[in-house]
């Protein structure tokens, strides 16, 4: 065990960790007013932070890899669009109902939590693919077929920007609360050894169901907010597998199982992604692919995991 007492540098770090994010969120809040040219960039940065942080609850803490994670995002986007355009529900309520249906979907998928490891990943992936086909084949009067639905009449980049910001803050706060709580400890036990956790009195089924519902809620809401922001949805982009892949990469790069990891991962990699995407759209995928391979082989704990492993004193401030 290294020195775990708070030394001077770590106390300074503590101040940074407490005030830094708040200052950053404040800066971001000014973006639509002060620098509208980068507001789309900041919107998607917040979107990916939300996705990666929520994904962390199920993969980072619990060890389940939902490879069809995009399904929740897609359902959120579609329910929001259908509620608003076909039923005339106001957009905030539409987004909330997207969240509700996302949670309902997670309950529908809940029996798959009985299977572990690679089987769970594949089954979840299949569920997402099946859902995409079903949505694309629903009557056009409802989901607009392969053309999707336009929401241009309620296009409001500023309002959706601040909604995404609120959602991001809520997600990170939730992950922070869960991670330090009894539930967080129970989830980590389940990740290491579900049988042992059961013997120790952890309610395995209940705990992982809670994690699963939370991990489903945020991407469903994010899907709705993003649909509002772009004002158009279609089956190909709403159920694009790349959304799962990017979420995994951002969360892993920052550090799975840590609160700040997915945030740091999304901030650093989305910048790279945006840069390459603008200049060489083809190379973007190639680099994403190489990045996954290199991450798994050389940095499986991510930035935060690696740093806190080397400097145990930092563990008190970065979680």
């Amino acid at each position: 065990m290294r020195d775990r007492k708070e030394s001077t540098p770590s106390r300074m770090a503590a101040v940074w960790v407490r005030c830094g994010p708040a200052a950053l969120v404040l800066c971001a809040a000014l973006v639509p007013l002060a620098a509208p040219s980068i507001s789309s960039y900041i919107f998607y940065l917040m979107f990916w932070i939300t996705m990666a942080s929520a994904f962390n609850i199920i993969f980072g803490l619990t060890g389940y890899l939902p490879f069809g994670y995009v399904a929740f995002y897609g359902v959120g986007a579609y329910v929001t669009a259908v509620m608003w355009s076909r039923l005339g529900v106001p957009i905030p309520l539409s987004i909330l109902s997207g969240g509700v249906l996302g949670v309902a979907l997670s309950l529908l998928f809940a029996p798959t939590l009985r299977i572990r490891g690679i089987y769970f990943a594949i089954v979840n992936f299949s569920c997402a693919m099946a859902l995409r086909i079903l949505v694309a084949n629903l009557p056009e009067a409802w989901t607009g077929g392969s053309l999707g639905i336009s929401l241009s009449a309620i296009y409001n980049p500023n309002a959706s920007f601040y909604t995404m910001m609120a959602l991001m803050v809520l997600t990170i706060w939730t992950v922070g609360r869960v991670s330090g709580s009894r539930l967080g400890i129970a989830l980590r036990c389940i990740r290491e050894d579900p049988e042992a956790a059961q013997v120790l009195g952890v309610d395995v089924v209940r705990s992982r169901l809670k994690a699963w519902i939370l991990a489903a809620l945020f991407p469903s809401l994010a899907g709705g907010v993003e649909a509002w922001y772009t004002a158009i949805i279609d089956p190909d982009s709403s159920f694009n597998l790349l959304i799962t892949t990017k979420t995994i990469v951002y969360a892993m790069f920052g550090g799975l199982g840590t609160v700040m990891g997915p945030v740091i991962g999304a901030v650093s990699l989305y910048a790279l992604d945006d840069l390459i995407w603008g200049k060489f759209p083809m190379l973007n995928l190639l680099i994403l692919g190489l990045l996954i391979v290199l991450l798994v082989l050389f940095l499986p704990r991510g930035i935060v995991g690696t740093v806190t492993r080397r400097h145990a004193s930092l563990r008190a401030v970065i979680r």
């Binding site: 490891g117 690679i118 190639l286 994403l288 692919g289 990045l291 996954i292 391979v293 798994v296 499986p300």
Partner: peptide, 20 residues
């Protein structure tokens, strides 16, 4: 730590590289 999951993710990366 979890070879099955690590290999799965690695080959997800390789599949992206090959497609590109």
């Amino acid at each position: 730590e979890d070879p099955e999951m690590a290999s799965f993710l690695t080959f997800v990366g390789i599949s992206l590289v090959l497609t590109t």
